[in-house]
Design a protein around this nucleic acid. Structure first.
Length: 233
DNA sequence: GCGACAG
DNA sequence: ATCTTGTCGC
């Protein structure tokens, strides 16, 4: 279902975000059993005078964390990067990639903020609302909010607060490595978001869903060997 | 006015 | 995000 037009006008985009933010669900509404978790990431390719947006979405089986499906979509980049309006640049491509999946996920982790955003509608929230799926924002940097120093050991976290409310969690996903910024995307409460990200952590900074998506999104060319490596097709 | 600013 | 070499540390 179409929620709105993907305007390229900043003023209109801000108005749309304010209207959509009220529809975000901050409490759990996800399957009792999670069998498939998706990871989303976007990369860019410069080809002479044109910039292409490349969206990658991978689906991992849980708890094995094995990749069972993935999709990729390229399109000419529609908007420049403007802090706070990232979803209007990246989400359309992510939706196109999502529609190619054969295995539907029960939960989606997105590279970027969820409600930890000036108008409470980061990429993870916007994508979740559009797809009507549970989503979690997994960002590597802070967009807004304040937080206390996080203990250095893996698993510890401190609240990310803005204007008197908790908008996310600053989570140490690996010992002595910069923390991740976790926030509600849609249909998942903060504690549930934190536990699912934690459940998907192995020996790296990023949880497996976004780490695997990142591997493809940040690649110059998607070679055939990737298919074999994941035993797909 | 000045600084901050996901990817 | 992307452009890029070496380098410090577990």
């Amino acid at each position: 279902m179409i929620l709105h037009q993907w305007t390229k006008n900043p003023q209109e985009a801000i108005a749309i975000q304010k209207q959509l933010a009220s529809q975000i669900e901050r409490t759990d509404r996800l399957p009792a059993t999670i069998n498939y978790i998706a990871g989303v990431d976007i990369g860019f390719e410069q080809q002479n005078d044109t910039t292409f947006t490349r969206a990658v979405i991978v689906v991992l089986e849980y708890p094995s964390l094995k990749v069972v499906d993935y999709a990729l979509h390229r399109e000419v980049t529609r908007m420049p990067y403007i802090p706070g309006l990232l979803s209007f640049r990246e989400v359309p491509a992510a939706i196109a990639a999502f529609q190619q999946l054969k295995q539907q996920p029960d939960l989606i982790m997105v590279d970027g903020q969820g409600i930890a955003h000036p108008r409470h509608l980061g990429v993870a929230s916007h994508l979740g609302l559009w797809l009507d799926k549970p989503t979690i924002g997994v960002a590597k940097k802070r967009l807004c909010g304040k937080y206390q120093t996080v203990p250095e050991h893996k698993g510890s976290w401190t609240p990310l607060e803005d204007k008197g409310e908790t908008i996310g969690a600053v989570l140490r996903s690996k010992d002595n490595i910069n923390p991740l910024f976790i926030s509600i995307g849609h249909r998942v409460c903060l504690n549930t978001a934190i536990s699912w990200v934690t459940n998907c952590l192995t020996k790296y900074k990023l949880p497996e869903p976004t780490r695997q998506a990142d591997r493809l999104a940040s690649r110059r060319v998607v070679e055939e060997r990737i298919f074999k490596e994941w035993n797909i097709e």
